[in-house]
Design a binder for these strands. Structure first.
Lengths: 224, 224
DNA sequence: TCAACAATAATAGTATTACTATCATTAAAG
DNA sequence: CTTTAATGATAGTAATACTATTATTGTTGA
């Protein structure tokens, strides 16, 4: 199987981590550590110890840990969009394409052999736990100008377009889809930590399948 | 007009800030500062300078700045629930009660003279920008056990009950309402900072009214 | 009226974090 | 085989998130 590389916005990094051994180690190990200890406990110092490198070297790849997080999350959305594109290709019925997209967004991910340096399972957990922190900052607007959130916006648009194909008169396609994208991880978090906020059950992977049903039904009924 | 005091969970603070002059100054000034500079830039040191007190004194009220944020957000949800209770009292039609609740959740807030030490306008901005940070931490579960999120959960339940009155067979009442509560501030944030994610327009207070229309319609159609 | 008690102020100090800077070493490319 | 790019080693800084100690003030109630 040929190895792919997702095209990432230049501004996400100082030096492209996909280019070097050290870069890939940064990605692999940071995913592992952020998932385990959470973003706040994670530091470049700790990471440098794990990968047997130095803080200074990591700083040559990413300006700071926020940028690294944004990179990881952006990678996830790019990957998801690629998968959606791939799996909806040649599917003519927009209802069916919508169902595929929602399933791909909501399902529990498994490792993708196409990208051996990325643990997609752990990365999805990071998205569930930390992704909102990428834009809830004082510098959102500058970060946005630099295109750091293009992945998420592009994914939202792609699904919104399907919605508009189904019902061209629906006024809130992007609003609805960004709401559902957020709910796709928020509800998993709620099921695990604040279960009274949702009917979904965290046990096994039930949350994901229940959530897919919920989200798809919500979209279909809402757009009529 | 009689001054009220919202009943807050004891675990939210070390010493009740509503009891003392200094406590109220902490609340008033921290709302102002967090809104202005964002949670990350905000520190107890800076706050102590503004209120002409000391870090140590503030630490006698709140364990740390995260707890202070949780307190403020909890206050907001308690306040909202109180308003909903008040305004839906004696309204028999559940559809009408739902509409009132969604309007109160989504509308742009104005200062409530009942609580002079709280700037509700600024506090709503904090909810929009920072509220997700209250639970996206490693200690969610302990915090939740201490009841720190009771306000939000209680509000969610109250509206979910209305949904179930309208359609007792709907399976995802809490899921849908927690989704809509999140969307109620997320969409405002998007309109202001990532406008391609939403049809809502940030100009004036349009986001709020457009969002109310969107959210109510989404709920109504989804529950059938 | 005074004692004692609670709240706060003043001050200092610590460990950790999030960097920045400098210079030495290694590895790869021309 | 030399130049240069990447990395390593090491050091240092300002800010943060606290904790601790002692002094001062203001209130209460005996």
């Amino acid at each position: 199987m040929a190895l792919l590389r997702l095209e990432m916005n230049d501004n996400l990094y100082l030096r492209d981590p996909q280019d070097t051994e050290l870069g890939r180690k940064i990605i692999t190990q940071s995913i592992c550590m952020i998932e385990e200890m959470g973003l706040e406990q994670f530091t470049f110092k700790k990471l440098s110890v794990e990968i047997e490198s130095t803080e200074a070297s990591i700083y040559r790849y990413f300006e700071n840990k926020h940028r690294l997080l944004v990179y990881l999350i952006a990678w996830y959305w790019n990957w998801l969009e690629y998968k959606i594109e791939y799996e909806t290709n040649n599917v003519v019925d927009p209802q069916e394409r919508l169902a595929i997209a929602v399933r791909l967004v909501g399902e529990k991910k498994v490792a993708d052999p196409m990208f051996p340096s990325v643990d997609e399972v752990a990365l999805q957990r990071i998205v569930i736990n930390e992704s909102d922190k990428t834009y809830h900052t004082k510098q959102v607007d500058e970060d946005n100008k630099e295109g750091l959130f293009r992945g998420f916006k592009s994914l939202c648009k792609r699904i919104a377009v399907i919605v508009l194909e189904i019902n061209p008169d629906y006024l809130y396609a992007h609003t609805l889809i960004s709401t559902m994208l957020e709910a796709s991880h928020q509800q998993v978090f709620f099921a695990e930590h604040l279960p009274s906020l949702t009917e979904h059950k965290a046990a096994d992977g039930r949350v994901h399948s229940e959530n897919i049903v919920f989200l798809l039904e919500m979209i279909r009924k809402t757009i009529g």
